[in-house]
Write a protein that binds this DNA or RNA. Structure first.
Length: 501
RNA sequence: CGGGGUGUAGCGCAGUCUGGCUAGCGCACCUGGUUUGGGACCAGGGGGUCGAAGGUUCGAAUCCUUUCACCCCGACCA
């Protein structure tokens, strides 16, 4: 038996560890379609919880859901120059609309389309087109729409959840009468994302602005939340874009203002994807598999009946059923606790590890011995040892236990980020920090570095060979005079740097 | 699209250099039994057009030609 449920460990080979966790927790697997994944029930359950929480947040901030087509006329994508350039290289294109029997018994495409359709890589253009029709007057503004959808970006290299050719996400699109209002919206949605990440995913994030090079194609500015994974690499977890009037001018999203004149709307867009499941895995999971923050766990508690002898079976199962109902009556996070019984005919040890690997926050084992004492045997995913506890006591403590696990995960992740964040004054230290000791098989190294910098080509040139990128310029910083670590120029701008996914 | 690699059972592989019995092993799966408060053990069993097409040969997983697919390293990325 291996010392850890997952091999290799994070230390030994982080990328491989990640893949093994996804597999062991039964979250998703590769599909016959290149680059596309199949999300399995346990993984999809996490996504459903993410959707539920975010959807509530979007509605609470005045947004409504709608749905737009999967296909976008190619001409739409051509309207915004930077936007085309950004996405052109990774678009799937539909050119035909039927199949005919071919000479070799196969099927060949027939019925070519007059105008090819692009499978949406994002929906700015088609939503903008509809916005133009819906908006006539300043009284129609603001218009605040969200869509839950799948999008396709023909990525060359893929990893489950982190980068797949097709992924699920939500994309918010809003139009406003003034620049200020649009900027406020961009910032508001970033705050929503940060709230979601920190309070539900238990994942601390940096809120910041992207540099020119990292900006969304066509955006005036891109705000983002950045998070540090356990291998100290950065993951962009969500973005909120201020699109200025770029898209409204390209798509004629115009309105008559209160003064009777004609104005272009100011638009925003913001998105968050199934990549967050990857972020969740890489933030919390350990060498025994997935660790789930209770607020997003598909199930909170699993009851494993210990059925050794046939004559005990009825007693044990009845006790478990009663226990299940009692637990389901407990509330956590404004919802009933999600509990289920796993009575599969399986060895105790195997069953225990099955649930450990899937990250169920609380495991209960109930056998004749516990029933005699009216107790339960409790195993917490965040603690190595299981303990026997009186049933009533467990029921009373359950919300506290779940809250403790949730908070503990956040604290640990924050501690991890803080202890791997540095502020350097010399480029030498910076370079050393990001250079692995073992070049052939780089060990886990680096982290975040905070320093003054000027967003220019020279800076990018220095960063390139190090494979380091500016992650963001943190928001709300007091301007302090300093020297750019890369160019030596005077500046008040400070940024956070790191290697990224 | 540049450089490298791999295709053999559901998964992971050996066998290929040096052609030769009925193509093997581990895990998983099925059956029976012994077990069961910590990832069991014993016995038996099912499952393969050896990526595809063509060629050489008495004989091809193995040699030759062509082709397809996938993986890794680069450019791009929620």
């Amino acid at each position: 038996m291996a010392k850890t449920a997952i091999t290799p460990t994070r230390e030994e080979d982080y990328p491989e560890w990640y893949q093994q966790v996804v597999k062991a927790a039964d979250l998703a697997e590769n599909s016959p379609v290149r680059g596309c994944m199949v999300i399995k029930p346990w993984g999809y359950g996490i996504w459903e919880n993410m959707q539920r929480v975010l959807d509530r947040m979007f509605k609470d901030t005045g947004h409504e859901n709608a749905y737009f087509p999967l296909f976008i006329p190619k001409s739409f994508l051509e309207k915004e120059a930077e936007h085309v350039e950004g996405f052109a290289k990774e678009c799937a294109i539909v050119t035909h609309h039927r199949l005919e029997p071919g000479p070799d018994g196969g099927l060949i495409p027939a019925g070519p389309l007059d105008e090819p359709l692009v499978v949406r890589p994002t929906s700015e253009t088609i939503i903008g087109h509809m916005f133009a029709k819906w908006i006539d007057s300043y009284r129609d503004l603001p218009l605040k729409i969200n869509q839950w959808a799948n999008v396709v970006r023909w990525e060359m290299r893929v990893r489950l959840f982190l980068r797949t050719a097709e992924f699920l996400w939500q994309e918010g699109h809003t139009a406003h009468a003034t620049k200020e209002e649009a900027l406020e919206e961009t910032r508001l949605m970033l705050d929503v994302y940060a709230d979601f990440a920190e309070n539900f995913m238990a994942m601390p994030v940096l809120k910041g602005e992207k540099t020119k090079g990292e900006r969304f194609p066509g955006a005036e500015s891109t705000l983002c939340i950045e998070s540090m994974m356990q291998d100290r690499k950065a993951l962009q977890a969500g973005t909120s874009h201020f699109l200025g009037q770029n898209f409204s001018k390209a798509q004629e999203i115009k309105f008559q203002n209160a003064e009777g004149g004609e104005s272009f709307a100011w638009t925003t867009s913001w998105g968050l994807s199934t990549r967050m499941i990857g972020a969740l895995i890489m933030t919390h999971s350990d060498d025994d598999g997935l660790v789930l923050p209770p607020r997003l766990a598909p199930k909170h508690v699993v009851i494993c009946p210990v059925l050794r002898k046939d004559e005990d079976r009825t007693t044990v199962m009845e006790y478990c059923e009663k226990l299940k109902q009692e637990i389901a009556a407990v509330r956590y996070d404004d919802r009933p606790v999600e509990v289920f019984i796993d009575d599969r005919d399986m060895r105790g040890g195997e069953k225990k590890w099955y649930h450990v690997k899937r990250g169920v926050p609380v495991r209960l084992e109930v056998g004749p011995r516990d029933i005699k004492n009216d107790g339960v045997f409790v195993g917490r995913r965040d603690q190595p040892k299981s303990t026997g506890v009186p049933r009533a006591e467990f029921i009373a403590q359950l919300p506290t236990i779940l809250a403790e696990i949730q908070q503990g995960l956040f604290d640990r992740a924050l501690q991890m980020r803080e202890s791997n964040t540095r502020a350097f004054d010399s480029l030498g230290e910076f370079k050393q920090f990001f250079t692995p000791k073992n070049q052939d098989r780089p060990e886990i190294h680096g982290g975040f570095v905070e320093c003054h910098f000027v967003d220019c080509d020279e800076t990018e040139e220095i960063l390139k060979p190090l494979k380091v990128t500016p992650r963001c310029i943190p928001l709300d910083q007091e301007p302090v005079e300093g020297t750019c670590l890369f160019t030596g120029q005077k500046t008040t701008c400070r940024g956070v740097f790191g290697k990224s996914y």
